[in-house]
Structures are given as structure tokens and as C-alpha cells.
Simulated assay, not measured.
Amino acid sequence: MNSFNVRDRFSLPRRRFLWLGASTCLATLTANCARNQQAANPESAIDFTTASWEEIVAAARGTTVNWAMWGGSDQTNRYADQWVGARLSSEYDVTLNRVPLNDTVEAVNKVIGEVQAGLTTGGNVDLIWINGENFRTMKQGNLLFGPFNDALPALQYYDRDNPAVTTDFGLPIEGYSAPYTGSYYVMVMDRARVTQAPQTFEELMTWAGKIPPLCLCGSTCV
């Protein structure tokens, strides 16, 4: 599962991150921007543990979030810049600044380095698209913001009993992340050779067991 991680840039005991999902992307980005506005204008500070979602959205207007993410996919970049960015701007008055990375660990290491240097406010990273071992590093290092996902309206559309939603690479999320994308397998068949496609995993395994193995050269092994 891919998730988002938002950098907390305010007066907190430690640097922390917030994860969000694709369907919750607009809303959760807005929550982080609200913290930016709070830092700039302490008089507008709100308590995020008790504030309503409407109050969080209102506090986020007019702010900017820096999103550090792997930049190797033009399709994903366009999605972030054009779809997410446009809706953040038009619906929430939030500006999205995508910061491309060669590898997600670049942003993770930057944050860890800033924390070790004692920088707890005004860091360079607001939001990270992150998963797997990087989430484990952040969670075990007590560098995550949360738990927060109960506050996200879009989480009602997820199966909260699904391990793919509640864990990341086997590590319990415990409210510190929300899903962004999932992985699916797509199979293509040649109807000239396969007249009836398997409909279940068991049928697929039975069908595959009847097919002669292929050599690396592409011919059938004997």
C-alpha cells in the first residue's frame, strides 16, 4: 500500500509526519496547511484534537504545502499537479508545490537530519508520498503525526477490517496513515489458445499446472 506522510512544521515536542490517502488527499493536505497558517498566525491557532473538520478546512485556506514525492512517473506527476493541485486550489484555496525526488528516502533522511539537528519547526518538507520500510523508520523513530485517520471523512469508504488498510508491509498503522493507492494484477489471455479463462485462484493454479513449461528461448521444454 502506498501512503502519504505530511511533515508537521509547528511547535511540537518532536518532528512528526502525517499520512493520507488518495481519496483523502485534498482534505488531509488541507489539515496540514492549516497548521502552517497556525504557525504564521498564532492568534488563529486551533486545537486539532477537538476541532471539527469544517474548522480545519477553514483554517487551511490561503496556505501552501510542499509535497516531496518520487518523480519518476510522468502520469503520477500530472495527477498531482493537474488533478490534485487544481482541486486544492479551486475548492480549498490551498497551493500545492510538488517537490520531485529520485528516491523517497531522500526526503526521509532530510527530515531525520533536521530532527537530529534540533530543528522542530519550519522544516523543508511538508508532505511525503511514502510506504513500507520508510514508514517503519518513521514510526519506530516516533516521527509520525497522529493518530489522525479517524478525523478524515473519506475513511468511511474504506474497509477498516482489511489488513491492507490497517497495516503497511506488515506494520500496524494504528491511525498514523491513510491509504493512497493499491496494487492490482492484470492478466491478459490469448483467445486463440485459451477458450475459457480461470475465474478463481484455485482454477488458475489448476489451469497453470496443465501447461507445459517454457524454456528461456521461448520454446516448450521437453
Rank of each mutant, 00 (worst) to 15 (best):
Q37T: 09
E43Y: 02
N131S: 15
V57G: 06
I130W: 03
T50G: 02
Y180C: 08
K110I: 08
T63G: 15
G170I: 02
W83F: 11
T95C: 05
R98T: 09
P198S: 06
V84P: 04
W207C: 00
F148A: 14
F4E: 01
N109M: 14
S183H: 08
A208G: 01
S11C: 07
S219Y: 09
R87I: 09
T167F: 12
F10N: 15
V188I: 08
D103H: 12
M189I: 13
E174W: 00
G72Y: 09
A60W: 06
A192I: 00
M69W: 12
S3F: 10
L143N: 05
L101E: 01
V108T: 06
C221N: 03
F169T: 11
S52V: 03
T137G: 01
C217L: 02
A151T: 08
M205D: 07
A178S: 02
M138H: 06
Q199V: 07
Q37P: 00
N97K: 12
F48I: 12
Q75M: 15
A34Q: 04
A39E: 14
T206C: 01
V111F: 03
T121M: 10
F135Y: 13
R9H: 08
T181E: 01
P153D: 15
N5R: 07
F17P: 01
G21I: 05
M205P: 00
R15V: 07
D190P: 10
W67A: 12
V222I: 03
L152M: 14
Y180K: 02
N77C: 01
A60L: 05
Y176G: 04
W53C: 05
D168N: 11
D74F: 06
Q196V: 02
A34K: 07
T49Q: 11
W129Q: 15
T63Y: 12
G182Y: 08
V6P: 02
N97A: 06
G71W: 04
S89Q: 12
R14W: 07
D159F: 04
L12S: 14
T104H: 03
G122M: 08
D150Q: 11
T63E: 14
E55P: 02
V194Y: 02
L204W: 11
S73P: 00
E54Y: 05
T167W: 06
L18K: 11
T195K: 09
A68N: 11
M187T: 12
S177Q: 08
W53E: 06
S219N: 11
T28C: 09
F145Y: 12
M187L: 12
L26A: 04
G146E: 15
M187I: 03
A22M: 13
S89A: 15
N5G: 14
D8L: 08
W129P: 00
N124H: 07
W53P: 00
T120L: 13
A80V: 13
Y180I: 03
G141R: 02
M69Q: 13
G123F: 05
R16V: 04
A197M: 11
A31T: 05
R98P: 04
V65S: 13
Q156S: 11
A22H: 12
T195V: 03
A34D: 03
T220H: 05
C221W: 01
G141Q: 06
T64F: 10
N142C: 13
M69C: 13
E54F: 07
F10W: 14
Y185R: 09
R14F: 14
P179M: 05
V99F: 00
A208R: 02
R7N: 04
G71V: 06
F169C: 06
Q116A: 11
T200Y: 06
A40R: 10
L26K: 13
